[in-house]
Write a protein that binds this DNA or RNA. Structure first.
Lengths: 123, 123
DNA sequence: AATATAATTCAATAATTATTGAAATATAGA
DNA sequence: TCTATATTTCAATAATTATTGAATTATATT
């Protein structure tokens, strides 16, 4: 019913995960390949590495960084490992910034682009 | 009329500024002392240092980090330097996360606490 | 000018984070 | 089992960021 929440330490960890160009790009790329359905959507590590043109070990390092704080999830599919953005975690972080950090004083005009029709509503 | 916007590099810089416990606490403390009126609100460096119980040089280091990316502003008042949270910058960052990073797919239930009545509306 | 207060800068060091390429692990298919 | 593909781990190193205390700069008061 209610979304997840995060505390200060978790927020710092998630912010750290996003505060790096490569990782922010990883997240954006995963969002573009997102699907709400649990076992669908996301991108294989290899595909990500090719898209971002970075070495596999480097990608692995950054994905691990994002995995442990819950910003992404992973599942194995054959010999590939599929990574997927965790939008609930991201929402929780943004809620933290809005509520705990800004005490509601930050007016964010939510004229954000509507979510993609096919990836709508929680599973 | 419209709020400011930030690009990817600026977002990474601002995220880095927030991705550190001391700096996140600095920001929170400044938000608590915020006022919309331009030359009012904020906290002197010394007061901040005492509140957070950290060495002046350490505080200075972190404030500088937050100054250059616009997350806080400063003004001199006598021999004190008053630092103030820049909520417009924070709003811009959150908008970036919501729109550019999550492509609008992040539904943040804005049941955030209403802003403090005395600190409401833009100057 | 001399003194006190407030804050910043600086140098030294410590701690953390990022990159690279080689080696290891896991899975699939011949 | 052998081989190929996909990914992760590891060690070495580089780069960045954080902390400390002393010195400096800026402002105000006497």
């Amino acid at each position: 019913m209610f979304g997840m929440t995060v505390n200060e330490d978790q927020s710092v960890a998630m912010l750290s995960a996003l505060a790096q160009q490569t990782r922010l790009q990883i997240f954006k790329t995963l969002v573009a390949a997102h699907a709400e359905v649990p076992e669908e959507g996301g991108l294989a590590a290899g595909a990500l590495a090719r898209t971002l043109d970075i070495a596999p070990s480097r990608l692995s390092f950054h994905l691990k960084e994002m995995l442990w704080n819950g910003l992404v999830t992973s599942r194995r599919a054959g010999r590939s490992v599929i990574y997927k953005a965790n939008l609930n975690a991201m929402s929780a972080l943004i809620s933290y910034l809005l509520e705990d950090c800004c005490a509601g004083a930050c007016d964010v005009s939510v004229n954000a682009a509507q979510p993609h029709p096919t990836t709508r509503s929680e599973g």
